[in-house]
Each structure stands twice: as structure tokens, then as C-alpha cells.
Design a protein around this nucleic acid. Structure first.
Length: 306
RNA sequence: GGUACCAUAGCUCAGUAGGUAGAGCAACGGACUGAAAAUCCGUGUGUCCCUGGUUCGAUUCCGGGUGGUACCA
């Protein structure tokens, strides 16, 4: 079953939201009697199920899943923690499996596991909070000036319209007392396993139709109630999420339910577009249609049995 | 059936004192290293309903047609 190098294989199955990743992965996992790791930054949260289109009970029972619902809604989490935990877990799981499936739509998380991310110290949450407040009070010019002073090199390449990017750089500078740009290496880490990257896609029109249908299904399954039960946590980052923020606006009386549903569909379409843009820049992806099961199977076997 | 008003981008609409047109939303393209379903940047994609007339030139003015809306019958 192993390839020439004797390495195990991580099969990455990604693609835009609603393309059909879950169904395909369940089928593949059964075929290879293996397990599924999720790289979906919102399905991590225990209390977010309907709105994140988590795999259903039957699916979770059929194949062991990891990184689904392992976090409480108020837990802090980041991509570096994911990299570490997933690497540790893979180390263990590859003892028993030749192939393991990684699926999900969070491109940053997938890339962190495949390529690694640079090492930065943990940042005191108070620092970020203070920067956030200062920015709200003093505006983006202040943020720019601050960054320019701490790290002129990064200032020159950063998107100076993007507060999140600049805030991140500043907090690293403050925590390390060194410019952020001098700690960004972007070196690709080598992994002790082979990685096969597959990106699923469908004609745009069809994808959008699926988003439309799936959003309606979420409402039928009780999305409004799920969101209502999370009202106390609405300020948390985890809930700054398509499908949740729109329903909050409905519960606030800002939009009708119909308006909120339309907004969810629109924002989901945009999210799907951003995902596709992200995946396109990694040339390793084999772009496949989710229905090409045999071709996907052949690709996996070919890569591994070669 | 009559009268009035309307017909411009995917949608809602603005505009052109006659020189082939522009906003919002949608859409499309892009960026991305601990917030990533986040955050941010860029792009107008058009038989100006059809058809005659006037004019060097009509989306714009005039006539007719078609469709829609409102009111009157």
C-alpha cells in the first residue's frame, strides 16, 4: 500500500463551502477504512452545528472524526495551535492508518498543517484588546503610524487598509520587541508524510444553487433556535460567522427573517468565492468534480501505489 | 375599452439642454502566517423595449407598436 518513499499519505480534500466535501470524504474514508480530520475553523466549536453544516450523527458514527466540536464556544484558538495538535494527532493515527483524510474549507488551517507556520510567541489577549480599542478610538492612521514606527519594512508591504493585519504585526512587535518582518520566514516545513491535495469544485451556478438549498435546509433544521441559544456569546469571534451574524440581526429586529436568509446566501456565496481564490494560488491542487469518484480514487491509489 | 405615467446594467433607479451612459446592491477578479466562515483591495459587465420620422448625428425630440403600473369605465 505504501509508495516508494515508504511514507504515509495525507489526502487533503478541500473546496468551497457546500461543494460536497463531507459526502465524498465519508465515502473515501470507508473505502480506505480510515479516519477524517477536519480543518474547518467553525466546525471546531461544539455549540455551532446547524450553521456550520457539521457532519450529521450518522456520518460521525460511520467514520471517526477529529477536530469536530472539540472546542467550547468561548475557547481561544488559533492556527498555530491547530498545526501542533494536528501534527501530534497524525503522528499517532499514522501508526494505524496508511492514509488519512484531511477535509474542510479553511485554507489557512490546511496550509498550516501542510506547510507549517512561523513561530511567534503567544500574545497576551489584553494587548490585542487594547490595540483594538485604540484603533476604534483613534482610527486607522494611528494604526499605520504605530506600525510604521515599530516595523517600517512590514509597513511597506502590508495592506494599510486592513486593520487586522496591522494589529497583528504590532502585537507581535510589542510582544517580542523585534520587528514582525524579521520573524516571518515563510519557510515550508517538511512533513513525515506525503500530501495529496484535491480541491473540489462545481460550475458556479450549481454551487450557488446548492448554497441556496443548504441555507433553506439549515433554517428548516432550526438554525434560528441554535443562534438564539448563543445570544449570550455573540461578541465572541467564533460567532462572527456567516449564518450566525445575520440571524443575530434578525433577532435584533434589524432584518426580517427573509432578509436575513437572503443575506446568509449572499455572504455564503462570497465566502465560497474567497475560498476558491485562496485554493487557486496553491498549484499543487488537483481540481476535481465531487462526482468523479472513480477518478479521485484512481488519483489517490496512483499516487500511493506508484 | 379610455386616460395618465413608466420602459436605461442581473435588481432598484439616476442621467444625457441631441454627440452611444452611471450610482447603490448583486456579480466578477484579487490579497492573505495565531481573528481566516475573519479582514481587506480592485473591476461597469449595457441592442438605453421595438419600429418609423426629424437631424450630420436619436437612448434623449415626434408618431406608431408592444409590455407594465395606476386611475376611469
Amino acid at each position: 500500500m505504501q509508495n516508494q518513499s515508504g511514507k504515509k499519505q495525507l489526502i487533503v480534500i478541500t473546496g468551497p463551502t457546500a461543494v460536497g466535501k463531507t459526502d465524498l470524504c465519508i465515502r473515501l474514508a470507508k473505502e480506505f477504512s480510515t479516519v477524517i480530520l477536519s480543518a474547518d475553523s467553525r466546525q471546531f466549536y461544539q455549540q455551532m452545528s446547524i450553521g456550520t453544516a457539521k457532519p450529521g450523527k450518522e456520518e460521525l458514527a460511520a467514520v471517526p472524526h477529529y477536530f469536530i466540536g472539540q472546542l467550547s464556544i468561548d475557547a481561544y484558538y488559533n492556527v498555530s495551535m491547530f498545526e501542533q495538535q494536528a501534527m501530534d494527532l497524525l503522528d499517532d493515527l499514522f501508526q494505524k492508518h496508511e492514509r488519512i483524510i484531511l477535509t474542510g474549507g479553511s485554507g489557512l488551517y490546511i496550509d498550516a498543517l501542510c506547510n507549517g507556520v512561523d513561530n511567534f510567541p503567544d500574545i497576551d489577549p489584553e494587548v490585542r484588546l487594547k490595540l483594538k480599542n485604540d484603533f476604534a478610538e483613534r482610527g486607522i492612521e494611528w494604526l499605520r503610524d504605530y506600525l510604521k514606527q515599530l516595523d517600517p519594512e512590514y509597513y511597506n508591504i502590508v495592506d494599510i487598509h486592513n486593520p487586522n493585519r496591522m494589529t497583528r504585526a504590532i502585537e507581535v512587535c510589542l510582544a517580542t520587541k523585534k520587528p514582525y518582518s524579521q520573524q516571518r520566514f515563510g519557510v515550508k516545513k517538511t512533513r513525515p508524510f506525503e500530501i495529496l491535495r484535491i480541491a473540489l469544485n462545481r460550475p458556479r451556478e450549481i454551487l450557488f444553487e446548492r448554497i441556496h438549498q443548504r441555507t433553506n435546509a439549515m433554517i428548516d433544521e432550526g438554525l434560528v433556535e441554535e443562534v438564539r441559544s448563543l445570544l449570550d456569546y455573540r461578541h465572541l469571534n467564533a460567532l462572527n460567522t456567516v449564518g450566525y451574524k445575520e440571524i443575530f440581526a434578525y433577532l435584533d429586529g434589524e432584518w426580517t427573517l427573509e432578509q436575513a436568509i437572503e443575506k446568509i446566501k449572499t455572504n455564503t456565496r462570497r465566502y465560497a468565492k474567497r475560498q476558491i481564490t485562496w485554493f487557486k494560488r496553491t498549484p499543487d491542487y488537483h481540481w476535481m468534480h465531487p462526482d468523479e469518484y472513480q477518478n479521485i480514487l484512481d488519483l489517490i491509489k496512483q499516487t500511493c501505489d506508484a
